[in-house]
Amino acid sequence: MIPSPTDLYQRDRALSDAPLTDAALSDAAPGPSTSPANASPVPMTSRILLPTLVALAALALWAVLSASGLLPPYSFPSPLEVAQGFGLESAQGRLLDNIIASLFRVTVGFTLGAALGVPCGLWLGNSSRARAALLPHINFYRCLSPIAWIGFAITWFDIGDKSAIFLIFMATFFPIALATIAAVSSIPAVYFRVARDYGFRGRELLMQVTLPAILPQLITALRVTAGLAWVVIVAAEMAGAQEGLGFAIMDARNGQSPDLLVVNMIVIGLVGVTIDQLVVRLTLLPGVRWGYER
């Protein structure tokens, strides 16, 4: 999905007479190959076609296993049952409501985690004393599964949005802060020398040197953490919510409807992949490409 350095080098040679435009940059985005120099090993059509074929093959295998009785209905639903369940769930609007409920909690919790985790990481990255004092504690909480907080979350915030948001925050804040600290500490010293030569100080230094210098690593960390948040929300909603995809999973289990279980599993996976695809688009910003191309 990200072109190899060689591809881009060749592309840049080809473009050398023209300034790098938005069009040229979108060339770096997953999209149809426009020039032979940009030909990646796997063409775009195959990148859609091949996974689709694999999905169809899995579906066929599943159908055969169900029809032959190797996978009896009580242990796993047939594709047809799942399709019917999917129709029922979406017709009643429950599916969309649950997706929205889960997405809302993840968005708010993740945004809070990033909005506090990044500044916290910048501060700790720049202050060795604060880092010495707090780094072991941040590591401690990062190693503590956020689900362990669920009892307190329900006691403090009751069942619903607030406790789920709290759990997502606990799941994302610590890894984001840690990744930011690590990124700051890996900034080459020469950037700070250049910054000093050209008079960057204080806030300007932070916003125009430190932050852009860590941005590629930060985006990677945000991508990983967004995935983590989506995993955690399902567990969080299983116990602490009355709607959401996690709740739907629990509800389907209690109602002994394996077809709905599978419907919601598929939806959770698909939404997770979509979130990842959205976050990964941040890596296409022109000012961060350097972090992925050398």
Binding site: V194, A213, V288, W290, G291
Partner: peptide
């Protein structure tokens, strides 16, 4: 006084 560094003295996030 202005300094020119060995390499990588340019900010990679700026054109």
């Amino acid at each position: 006084v202005r300094m020119v560094y060995q390499h990588d003295g340019l900010f990679p996030w700026l054109t």
